[in-house]
Design a protein around this nucleic acid. Sequence first.
DNA 1: CGCTTTTGACCTGCGC
DNA 2: GCGCAGGTCAAAAGCG
Length: 494
Amino acid sequence: MSIVYIILFIYTRDPKSQQDGGIYKLYMHTSTSEFRRIRTQGHLSCDFVSQESQSRAFTILNLCIYMLPNSKSSESPAQEMDETREEMDHIREDDLVALCLGRSSLSVAKNKDHLPKASKQEDDSLNQGLVLRLDGRSYEYSGDQNDAGVSKSQSPTKIEEESETDQKWGSSIGLKAARSEEDEALLQQHPAKKARVAVRAICNGPTMNDGCQWRKYGQKIAKGNPCPRAYYRCTMSTSCPVRKHVQRCQEDLSILLTTYEGSHNHGLPPAATAMASTTSAAVSMLKTSSTSTSQPSLSLPSATSATTKFPPFYAPNTTISTSQSHPTITLDLTTPSAYSHYNKYSSTFLPPHHTTYSPAASLNFSASSSSSSASFEHWRNQSISSSSYASLYNRTELQLPLMPHKNNFINQTQPQFSIEKIADATKEITSNPSFQSALAAAISSIVGKKSGGIAETMQSQFATSHFNSIFPQAGNLKFDFSPFASSKGDFRKL
DNA sequence: CGCTTTTGACCTGCGC
DNA sequence: GCGCAGGTCAAAAGCG
């Protein structure tokens, strides 16, 4: 099996200076042997550069978004591709913001030989392990521990504990690799165990407003944390098996750890679909990992794998654990890439106008009960007034952290490839449920982190507009996290 | 009065 | 088998 790299650029533009900001590159590994670079007109654009197309059927193995400094304008797509490879070789690792979903060795384009084709050995490594990475690389990469703005207190406790003894990439990865193998074995030993998704988020209220209705049925003092753990069950349906427990982080009382278990057997209100889609995507990843016994065994790459260009930053934002009886994936929303990198760079590189967040950034989880319509209305009003489609699109896209500018960068080069080919490829990609759920979760996570909570409308608008811009041939795909939408799905075709 | 929360008891799984 | 910890139950209390 080979590797496909699809690089998706998401341009950002500062609304005041009209200067181009950072770029997101989205690498997608699939199981076919192709390398594509996606580019279209405008802020978000696509073309496909397909070097080799052996099969249109593939599975999404990895989905990464890296934030890079601006690159140079290119004369042609072919030149751009060369530049991309060049970039991959020279890019400074700590310039990256990453958001990754999928299964990966993280050996993304470490060297030129890795692109576009991968050796069988690398293919095997790509198959190994299940990773959900949501930025945070700056916490794990310890090349410069004195990096300004990288506060240790922002780091999730779990990773903090690990990173204290495993400050370097290699050792950390080694641990994770070992653990992942154990996890895999455990997952296979206990197939009946329900997967859990834990969400760490800053929340002042008793629970996170995830859009569902919950009833508390118990409370316990758990070992190792004086803060009581509260148990809730979903009350939106009498037979709904979904439970969650909520516990405050001992180290930082503003952080709430919410662990979800089970799947809703009823329709969800639109406001609940964002979290549900995120958690279900995470669960599906766990399940995929645990059920893929017929495929090559899954394990994380060796710590000694020296062929990676990008360090395998298993972000502190996400961990997979089976230390308890249930396989658990932890999503950390307390260390958004935006904030960490923003903090890291704003004082040094960014012009003053970058030091203000968009209004949406001040949104937070509701401090009231989980089903508070008042808080929802408050949020809704904020969303409507501050994040219409147009304003969203013109505001540097939620003012995600920008990298230092090198050059202006809007390349309007016309694609040299047939529309049909692009459309075909786009359909293949966008019709893949794994990709849909992964991208939905990824974007909802990154937007959710930016806003400090679940901002459904913004997620919907952001994800929808971006996705449709990225894949204009996909037929108006829509991320439906909107509280005003009627569908319970998180991703659909209109 | 009905719904929710609290809280001690009980059950279950796991490690030794 | 025993002890421990996590999880659940259900009666009592609280609240609107």
